[in-house]
C-alpha cells in the first residue's frame, strides 16, 4: 500500500463531500480522485446535488405569522374533523380536492386510474377472509400507524374499558400487554375485522413516535403454530396462532426488537390465560 492511497472507501468519499474530514484526509482523497476519474465524476455529482438540494429547500426555513398558533393548536383548539377523516385541516382538504382532481385528469387521460376514482377513506375496509393474518396485520399497521389523531378508538387512559370491550367482541378474555420494559407505551386500541370477524388491535409507541401494533383475531380452525415471521417492504410481522386466537405483532423496527416484543406479548398472553382458566 503506497501511503494509503489505495484505501479510499466509499464512506471516505461521502465524508469528503459532506466536509467531515480534516485537511490531511481531504488532501489524500483529492489526490486519489485525480487518479480515479469515474469516482471523481460521482463526487462532482454528489456535490452538485447537495448544492441544488440546499437551494431547493432553503426558502422553507422561515417563520410564519401563524407559527405561534401551532403551539396553541395542540389538542382541543385544533379544528376537529368531520366524517372525511383526511380533511382534518385546510391542507388536508386542499390535498383531498387536489387528489380528486388529479385522479380525474389522470383517469381522463389514460383511463388507467379509473378504478381508484372513488376517494379512499381512511376507514379500514373489511379485509378479504382469504388474506392471511400477517397480511391483515400489515394492512392495519400501515393504515393506522400513519394516523396521528385517530390511530385508536379508545385511548390508553381507559385501559380497563378497552380490554373488556374488545374481549367481549372477540369473545375471548383479553389482557393488554404491558410493553413498557421495552420502551413502548400503549396508545390505545380499536376494533377491526380480522378474517371477517371482530378482531382487536392495540397500538404502542415509543418516546420518539415509533409505532407497533398487536393484532388479535379469531382463528376458527383452532390449530396452533410456532412463531413465524413475515416481512414486506420493511414492515415486519411476528405471528403465531394459539388455539382459538391468532396473534400478530407488527412494526417497522429492527427485527430483534420486534421479536422481543413478540416474546413479551406471548408471555403475557400465556400468563393471563393461565390465571383465567
Amino acid at each position: 500500500m503506497t501511503e494509503g492511497h489505495n484505501t479510499v472507501s466509499e464512506d471516505d468519499l461521502h465524508a469528503y463531500v459532506d466536509g467531515a474530514l480534516g485537511p490531511r484526509e481531504r488532501l489524500r482523497i483529492e489526490q486519489w480522485l485525480e487518479q480515479n476519474p469515474a469516482q471523481a465524476e460521482e463526487v462532482r455529482q454528489w456535490r452538485a446535488q447537495a448544492v441544488e438540494l440546499r437551494a431547493h429547500f432553503a426558502g422553507y426555513a422561515r417563520s410564519d405569522a401563524g407559527d405561534r398558533a401551532l403551539l396553541l393548536a395542540n389538542g382541543s383548539e385544533r379544528p376537529q374533523q368531520n366524517p372525511a377523516k383526511d380533511a382534518r385541516s385546510f391542507a388536508g382538504i386542499a390535498r383531498a380536492v387536489a387528489a380528486g382532481l388529479a385522479l380525474f385528469v389522470a383517469g381522463g387521460l389514460t383511463g388507467l386510474y379509473a378504478p381508484t376514482l372513488l376517494p379512499t377513506d381512511r376507514e379500514i375496509q373489511p379485509i378479504a377472509a382469504a388474506d392471511s393474518l400477517p397480511r391483515q396485520a400489515q394492512s392495519a399497521f400501515l393504515v393506522y400507524a400513519s394516523e396521528v389523531r385517530h390511530a385508536v378508538e379508545v385511548g390508553a387512559d381507559d385501559q380497563t374499558h378497552l380490554a373488556t370491550w374488545l374481549g367481549k367482541r372477540l369473545d375471548h378474555p383479553l389482557s393488554i400487554p404491558d410493553l413498557s420494559s421495552l420502551g413502548f407505551s400503549l396508545v390505545g386500541g380499536r376494533l377491526l375485522p380480522v378474517n371477517g370477524r371482530a378482531g382487536a388491535m392495540f397500538m404502542y409507541e415509543d418516546g420518539t413516535g415509533r409505532r407497533l401494533t398487536v393484532l388479535l383475531g379469531r382463528n376458527d380452525d383452532n390449530r396452533e403454530t410456532s412463531f413465524r415471521i413475515d416481512s414486506t417492504d420493511g414492515v415486519e410481522t411476528f405471528y403465531w396462532i394459539d388455539g382459538p386466537i391468532g396473534y400478530a405483532v407488527t412494526g417497522e423496527v429492527p427485527r430483534d426488537l420486534l421479536q422481543q416484543v413478540a416474546d413479551e406479548c406471548y408471555r403475557q398472553f400465556e400468563k393471563s390465560e393461565a390465571t383465567k382458566s
Binding site: F57, A58, Y60, D67, L70, A73, F90, A91, A94, R95
Partner: peptide, 27 residues
C-alpha cells in the same frame, strides 16, 4: 419551527403536506 418547517418539506411531496407534517410534529 423554521428548521422543522424546512425538514418537514424535505420529507414530503408538496407544500401543504409539509405544513401538515409540521403541525403534526409540533403537536
Amino acid at each position: 419551527v423554521p428548521a422543522l418547517r424546512r425538514y418537514a418539506r424535505c420529507l414530503v411531496r408538496s407544500d401543504p403536506d409539509g405544513e401538515d407534517l409540521l403541525q403534526d410534529c409540533v403537536e
